[in-house]
Design a protein around this nucleic acid. Structure first.
Lengths: 141, 141
DNA sequence: CTGGGTGCAAAATCTTTGCAGATCC
DNA sequence: GGATCTGCAAAGATTTTGCACCCAG
């Protein structure tokens, strides 16, 4: 896909780069609406997608698609498989260290923190390997 | 609010406790639909809310309400204010250590990780303090 | 020209709510 | 009994898409 340039896209990127907060699509839309009155929300969403595809913007993971719930009581972290989307609990020490350090370094009163690791789970690793192998022998599309 | 008990709610909680994954409301709904055919998705959502209120379940934060985007290139963590919802970047060392440790301890091939700290930002801290003070002198509702 | 980009509005997704009836205490 | 729960369906909220026209290369 060969991208052209457009005022809308350029402004969206620029706006994101200027902002320390992490805006929502709607925030961006409203912010630019004054400057580009014909702008539509659909365009904002479409351009965010393009920018993500170009690697210039990232969507904070664990977003929208669905809320997720857990009943666990023990504090723990999460492993998220980027391939199949599975979320697994992950026990790991050093909670307090990182917690305290963050509290010292910021002006926040920190109550809790959360760590998510993103990668490929064991199952998907083997699946992917199989696919890789097939590619070498199989026909090329 | 005084909660009674209901089969639906009990089963939802039980299901969440049995599951290592972090289900979506829809997953729960489908899973229980066989057992309780009259069950409706609305009830699942309502009960999840009650369970959260009772502190028995938590919703993984940073959920649905809105997707959020950022253009930053440097790796960094996030500070999220639980009062006003602001998200701020937070620079902090020790990326590699925790990353490697997690890779060793899990069977995942880890690509990246993310840390969010939740608490109260400076601004809200002062606002809250003011409110607290007022409470002592002001009229009680 | 050609294919990406845009606005608009309709559709799709996910979540919340109003209502009338069933249920728990 | 009366507040709490439920199912159902309608309404909300957020995101995606189809279509016809516009514009960059």
């Amino acid at each position: 896909m060969h991208y052209r340039k457009s005022r809308q896209r350029e402004r969206i990127l620029q706006l994101l780069r200027e902002t320390r907060a992490h805006p929502t699509a709607d925030w961006i839309y409203k912010k630019l609406k004054n400057e580009i009155p014909e702008l539509s929300l659909g365009t904002v969403y479409r351009n965010l997608k393009v920018l993500i595809d170009q690697g210039k913007v990232r969507k904070l993971p664990f977003g929208s698609t669905f809320d997720r719930y857990e009943a666990g009581t023990e504090p723990h972290y999460h492993l998220v498989c980027e391939q199949c989307g599975a979320v697994t609990d992950f026990q790991m020490p050093q909670y307090k260290t990182i917690h305290k350090k963050a509290e010292l370094m910021s002006s926040f009163k920190i109550h809790s923190h959360r760590i998510d690791f993103f990668g490929i789970c064991e199952k998907c690793q083997t699946t992917l390997k199989k696919k890789e192998r097939r590619k070498h022998y199989g026909s090329r599309k």
